[in-house]
Amino acid sequence: MTSLRKKNPFGIAVVIAATLLFSCGEELSIDEPGNLVPKTVTQDASLPAIYANGAWLHSEAFGPEEATMIIAIHGGPGGDYRYLLNCKDLADNGYRVIFYDQRGSGLSQRFPKRSYTSLQERAVDLMYDELTAVIDHYRKIPNQKVILLGHSWGAILASGYVGKHPDKAQGLILCEPGGLKWKEIEDYVKESRSFKLWSELLNDATYLDQFITGKEDQHEILDYKATMMASKNDITGEGDFDPSASWRSGAVIMDALFSVGDSYHIDFSKGLENYTIPTLFFYSGRNRAYHDSWAQKITRHYANVEVVKINGVGHDGIITNTQEWNAQTKPQIINYINSL
């Protein structure tokens, strides 16, 4: 043994290293649900959930069951409704306020990327059908009014929905949809993510890739990475000068819907000319990617629109800034609904 050690220290080192490595005790795995990201409704039965259009969705509703429904539609794709919870205040005004995490997002059920991309441009119809199913789930009386309240991607989705189904919503409230035609969406995303090359924000988004990598449908890993990357944006204000809150990103659906949009140049303004009910359109004073001229450009897609600028906040702050929500956004929403 002594002679072996003298002759081959390299081999001994390998054996010691291997022994130590394989005896390192209990480990945590990055793809185990509940380790780095919260469990979804299919992994944690205690979460509030509904079954809609073939998916288990994390969902809650507040306010009188037969009152006018306000459906809060979150951003992303791949965000969740936690940051929209100030809208719950509207239940105190007598409305039925409904929240849901879209499929593959937040705490809702996850699906493989292929389940979206294989539908090609019909992947967007899946999201519309899901919204119809959520409305149908909560509808208690046949003539119950429905008002869509969409933020960011949620506002794009709501716009596309009423363009396709103008009779299904009796009101439309939108907060800073990036764009409706694909080129507009591309331009907005580029503008809102134009971090300086040398900045800490860009570095935080890119340096992580050497520590954690996930395969195509490893949701726990990809969602965690997406949450880390989406945490802060000093251009739009998300997580920066605006308060922000979320549960869990949906990386796969975000990637899939961007991929579908890019491949088929989805036009979310299609049919909007047929939606003549007034639309309430908010944009923020501090989102540097959503200046006045951009708001003017986007609002031209709507047949009948009232445009309101919320000063002192950024993209999320229209709703997440509690002070401005109470002072500006909420009163505008209540006046709008009363005017319908």
Binding site: L28, S29, P38, I212, A245
Partner: peptide, 29 residues
């Protein structure tokens, strides 16, 4: 990336209070 230690901040614990800190393996990337 053979083995990685995760230590989360209070900010992330507001997002997910039950996040588990510690050494993660097998390889994280």
């Amino acid at each position: 990336a053979i083995v990685t230690h995760f230590k989360h901040t209070d900010k992330y614990r507001e997002i997910f209070p039950d996040v588990k800190d510690g050494w993660y393996e097998p390889a994280t990337g």
